[in-house]
Nucleic acid binder design. Structure first.
Length: 122
DNA sequence: AAGATGACTAACT
DNA sequence: AAGTTAGCCATCT
């Protein structure tokens, strides 16, 4: 058919699929920053695109959007905003710790998620 | 069409 | 430590 140029779910935002894939792969209890997601998705230097992709993600994907924070380990929504509170609550429910509104990105990296699974929290 | 914006970041003051 | 600048580029006015 001349029709099947794209799948039912795509609405022209196909350029974000790789980003969504990466985010979907972040294990519970760990976080990545925008720049890191961009790099893993094959778009080094395009951190802003990740924020864009998150905002435009189809609901059908149900991405763990809360596992993406900024390079300082902080939530990139205005402090005290409903979105920020929700994100923090979701992360803390997974065992991510905040110290002074900041997450230790080294400690809660996906790389260390494996360690946590084998050894438990330090 | 051109300028402003933004779920960003690294480098520099 | 906190503010500014420059780079980034898809969207929105």
């Amino acid at each position: 058919m001349a029709g099947d140029l794209e799948t039912t779910d795509s609405g022209g935002e196909d350029r974000y699929v790789k980003v969504w894939d990466v985010i979907e792969g972040i294990p519970a209890g760990s976080v990545l920053n925008y720049g890191e997601v961009a790099r893993l998705a094959g778009f080094p230097g395009r951190a802003r695109m990740v924020g864009m992709a998150l905002g435009r993600a189809p609901k059908s994907r149900q991405l763990p959007w809360h596992r993406v924070v900024n390079a300082q380990g902080k939530i990139s929504f205005p402090e005290g905003s409903p979105k920020a509170k929700t994100q923090r609550r979701l992360l803390e429910a997974e065992g991510v710790e905040f110290v002074d509104d900041t997450i230790d990105l080294e400690r809660f990296s996906p790389q260390r998620a494996m360690d946590r699974e084998l050894w438990g929290p330090p």
